[in-house]
Design a protein around this nucleic acid. Structure first.
Length: 460
RNA sequence: GGCGGGGUAGCCAAGUGGUAAGGCAGGGCUCUGCAAAAGCCCCAUCCAGCGGUUCGAAUCCGCUCCUCGCCUCCA
């Protein structure tokens, strides 16, 4: 296999991937804020990190992957208060829903998924270091801010002209204590609106700012210098820029060697947004009758991760049809003892090509194109009575990346009855009745197909 | 305005110097009692536009147009 190459947002070029201590890879991704059901745009980011970790593992890297969970911020506090329940109870509900949705999409679990609120000491420790070094300062009433002017490279990730921003400084009322417009909060003093959500700190009662949690948890679980940090493009500024500043100011080390950002999922050509109400959840898509694995395929295989993906039902229908094609192909070799023999030359060649394509910045659509060529070729072979030895082994190697689960098919009793009746009708060559029963089955949301082996039921 | 992604067939999308992968939709055929949601075949003289470099460009350079995102809530 070719060496893995990845687009590093920091250098804006595709680079050979070289971890600090090969074969070990330490990887961190910014995770969800658990105040609501995550939308499928959010999940595009997690599908991306899933692809990345699957590729890394199949390139024989030993990956340690941490994704944090933001379980304290304005939105979570507000949500818990609106329902009159403790913050922890509120966030636990959406943390659970998130894991359920991740499972629907067959996203492999991270090695750790820590809660921000379980790492307050790590955060206050980091903030203390920054204050001692002069990179941060407490305000009179107990908030702590990062002093952007103390970190020379600030803006290095995004190439922002920070002086330009300062020139147009808008200083809102609740930020009047900052020395400078660009300074960002590390520790927020407690205010009455926070209710009982507060932790003690050297600067008094309060709660952490958003950015500090990622730095603190990344360092706590993975060390001061990690290989890969990922997230959506919208996090580049300010979130990742601030992470770099506070982390590197504290440790003097390179915080992350590779910054990988996934592009957005669009709806009607616009960014999916919770604030604007233009979003679908995984549950919405499932309720429309699409399987989780079809959504996974649409988010994973359709478009390379650095391209916008315009979500439409047409895209979902295309994904569904494509997944069915793969299913039908798999049925042709499933259970054949020759399938699990070592792959033949064509199979090995295809695996090589598939992984080489992925090696170039995770070109999943390109790799899928090769899969379809392989499917067509092996279908032809099987049509002509030649069985491609090891085809099952090839699929196993490919599906380690694709992660397509078996189709889910729970057959209701009434449908099974109709199917049995139809089987009897066909045996009796009563095709009129047989066709009527097929129509009856279709009203239950299933399609029935006749094969050499007998009837087969599919979701419609 | 600054920075960053893009503009390839009806739709989605690879390809980044050697003469347009693949999927969906559509058309034809095969299998089938019928049927296909199955299998096979067909389906871009052309890559936003205009110049330039080159034996050769969708691919490199320049300019223009269009589009999405970020510029302190954001995946």
């Amino acid at each position: 296999m070719r060496p893995l190459r990845l687009y590093n947002s920091f250098t804006r070029t595709i680079e050979d991937f070289q971890p600090l201590e090969a074969p070990h890879v330490r990887m961190y991704a910014c995770g969800p804020t658990v105040y609501n059901f995550a939308h499928i745009g959010n999940f595009r980011a997690y599908i991306f990190t899933d692809l990345l970790q699957r590729v890394l593992r199949n390139f024989n890297y030993k990956v340690r992957f941490v994704m944090q969970r933001t379980d304290v911020d304005d939105k979570t506090i507000k949500g818990a208060q609106a329902e009159g329940i403790p913050l922890r109870e509120f966030t636990a509900r959406y943390a659970k829903a998130f894991l359920e949705d991740m499972a629907q999409l067959n996203i492999e679990p991270q090695d750790d998924m820590p809660n921000a609120t379980d790492h307050i000491p790590q955060m206050t420790g980091l903030i203390s270091q920054l204050v001692e070094k002069g990179n941060a300062y407490p305000s009179d009433d107990g908030s702590v801010y990062f002093r952007v002017s103390s970190f020379g490279p600030y803006g290095c990730l995004c190439g922002l002209d920070f002086d330009g921003l300062k020139a147009g400084a808008r200083v809102s009322h609740d930020e009047y204590e900052k020395e400078s417009f660009g300074d960002f909060v590390l520790w927020k003093k407690w205010v009455a609106a926070d209710g009982d959500v507060a932790w003690d700190s050297p600067w008094g009662k309060g709660r952490p700012g958003w950015h500090i949690e990622c730095s603190a948890m990344s360092m706590h679980y993975l060390g001061k210098e990690i290989d890969i940090h990922c997230g959506g493009v919208d996090l580049k500024f300010p979130h990742h820029e601030n992470e770099i500043a506070q982390s590197e100011a504290a440790t003097g080390k390179k915080f992350a060697r590779y910054w990988l950002h996934n592009e957005h999922l669009l709806v009607d050509g616009r960014k999916m947004s919770k604030r604007d109400g233009t979003f679908f959840t995984v549950r919405d898509v499932l309720a429309k009758g699409y399987e989780g694995r079809v959504l996974r395929y649409a988010l994973l295989a359709n478009v390379q991760y650095r391209q916008n993906l315009n979500f439409t039902w047409q895209v979902m229908d295309a994904a569904k049809a494509t997944v069915q094609r793969i299913d039908e192909w798999r049925k042709r070799f499933a259970g054949n003892p020759l399938a699990d023999k070592p792959a033949d030359e064509a199979g090995r060649g295809f695996i090589e090509t598939f992984y080489n394509t992925l090696a170039e910045d995770l070109d999943m659509p390109g790799a899928i194109g090769h899969l379809h060529n392989y499917i067509t070729e092996t279908n032809k072979l099987m049509d002509s009575g030649h069985f491609p030895e090891g085809i099952g082994a090839v699929w196993t190697k490919i599906n380690a990346i694709l992660g397509l689960k078996e189709p889910e098919l729970s057959i209701p009793n009434e449908v099974q009855d109709l199917l049995d009746q139809r089987g009897a009708a066909r045996k009796a060559k009563d095709f009129k009745l047989s066709d009527e029963l097929r129509k009856a089955i279709e009203t239950h949301g299933f399609k029935v197909k006749d094969t050499a082996k007998g009837q087969e039921l599919l979701r419609s």
